[in-house]
Design a protein around this nucleic acid. Structure first.
Length: 443
RNA sequence: GUGGCUGUAGCUCAGUUGGUUAGAGCGCCGCACUGUGACUGCGGAGGCCGGGGGUUCAAAUCCCCUCAGCCACCCCA
């Protein structure tokens, strides 16, 4: 009777493009709600930019991110000028820069915005690395000068997010690119970014490995290496790093400026709990366009796991799109990366399989209107309610509720004068109740 | 993009020195049970053995290619 389809295309997971079960997605949405609430509590407003940008916009900053950008074209490319003109955005900072340049006249500065959207990168996926992932960004942009206050506010906001998400202990490490820039310049090192890249691997390949690469790849002298490592090993929970930098005896104007800025940030964060915030002069993560403060956050329980939240200050990002100086500072929480890790480690409660709080059953030999009107009355009281879709065996209706972890099952009153009954699925207890007064113990 | 490892039911995996019609557990559907779930019993559906080619009387098994996934590098949320 039923013919077999000619060909079955077996679905396979596409590496790097995660998707969640309903019970997992419910937790993810709760995360998004929490994050949004924190961002708005600090006065950040939401914007959403298109998934695509012009390729020229995405690559205006240069760098070698080009090869990880996904270009968009139609399957049947007609070769017209409009084809291949746009690509999926790689992060949310570049779209923000373009957005500010485009809407400059309509924005009030300092412009504070948050953006919770997907980003796409053509990397080889592995644990903690996806090709499509959700980022939660906050940035502040101002005209000409941007107050250092904002550099200090970012970690405080992010810490609040971490607390609300209940993802275990987290450390937020802070550095300032000016310290690295100034220190290395003061030592007479020319390839500053090259050295930064190597030193940044400290936690991965260790002191020995960094020393070796500095000698082999950057061609530094033993004395230079020793001083670079001394700087990189500085890590303090407060502003005391400054004295340690001083003791290394390198004089440089940029270095002094960096120390001053980082000191301000550290002193401003003194109210946060011990063991969360560190001035860590080895970290330099993130994009090349960072010019001052840089942030990196790690899950304390999983030191091997990559940074879950990083960002920094950039002095001239918008300059690629308009002839103005608009410095900014921002930070980006990698929601997908963090969420996937928590899921894998079994740290998330994914028992609830649907938003339904009450299942109204259909009793045999009764009008379905009875169940429908009962469900509607409960919805009017604000509960999430579904009516079972047929007058099936009670066993099946209850089993459905059990499998979806619906906490309550409602038995409508069949006749006038008879009472409604509600069953608590966890305890198995069933008791008479009334439509307009019922109060669940849980929910 | 470079290198290494792995592909058998929806999932986790067996499958002998190549040898009839490829198995198990879990999950799914049905029944025992036409007003009450989790346990139990019985029954059922579900496989181009990732794909293509080669060797052989014979391939899930051996060889080649390819695709996909995982891990490391690179880079980064």
């Amino acid at each position: 009777m039923s013919e077999k389809p000619a060909k079955i295309h077996k679905p396979r997971p596409i590496s790097g493009y995660p998707e969640w079960l309903p019970e997992e997605r419910m937790v993810e949405q709760a995360w998004i709600d929490q994050i949004r609430a924190v961002f708005e509590a600090y006065g950040f407003g939401s914007i959403e930019t298109p998934s695509v940008e012009e390729i020229e916009v995405l690559t205006a900053k240069g760098g070698d991110t080009d090869k990880e950008i996904y270009a968009i074209r139609r399957l049947h490319d007609d070769g017209g000028a409009s084809e291949g003109r746009v690509a999926l955005h790689y992060d949310l900072t570049v779209p923000l820069a373009r957005y500010v340049a485009q809407h400059y006249g309509d924005l009030t500065f300092p412009f504070k915005r948050y953006q919770i959207q997907k980003a796409w990168r053509g990397e080889r996926p592995q644990e903690g690395r996806f090709r499509e992932f959700l980022q939660c960004d906050i940035d502040v942009i101002d005209n000409d000068e941007l107050s250092i206050e904002f550099d200090a506010e970012m970690p405080a906001i992010i810490f609040e997010v971490f607390q609300r998400l209940d993802i275990g202990n987290v450390t937020i490490n802070i550095n300032n690119r000016k310290i690295l820039q100034g220190f290395y310049s003061g030592l007479g090192i020319e390839d500053v970014t090259g050295v930064i890249r190597i030193v940044d691997k400290m936690d991965k390949i260790g002191v020995q490995g960094v020393a070796k690469q500095l000698a082999d790849e950057a061609g530094l002298s033993a004395d230079m290496i020793s001083r670079c490592l001394s700087l990189a090993e500085i890590k303090t929970p407060d502003a005391s790093f400054a004295d340690q930098v001083q003791a290394l005896g390198v004089e440089n104007e940029t270095l002094s400026k960096g120390v001053e800025e980082l000191s301000f940030v550290m002193n401003s964060l003194g109210h946060l709990p011990q063991g969360v915030i560190f001035a860590d002069l080895s970290i330099a993560r993130g994009f090349d366009y960072y010019t001052g403060t840089v942030y990196e956050s790690k899950l304390a329980d999983y030191p091997e796991f990559p940074s879950i939240c990083s960002g920094g200050r950039y002095d001239n990002l918008v300059s690629s799109y308009m002839n103005k100086r608009l410095p900014g500072v921002g930070i980006s929480f990698g929601l997908t990366r963090t969420f996937a890790k928590m899921l894998k480690e079994g740290k998330l409660d994914t028992n609830i399989k649907s938003p339904t709080q009450v299942l109204v059953v259909q009793l045999p030999d009764t009008d379905r209107e009875l169940a429908a009107s009962t469900a509607q009355a409960l919805r009017a009281r604000g509960f999430n309610v579904e009516m079972y879709h047929e007058a099936a065996k009670m066993k099946n209706q209850l089993r459905y509720a059990e499998r979806k972890a619906i906490p309550y099952v409602w038995f409508p009153a069949v006749d006038r004068g008879q009472s409604h009954e509600v069953k608590d699925m966890a305890s198995g207890e069933q008791a008479p109740t009334a439509l307009d007064t019922w109060q669940p113990a849980r929910i």
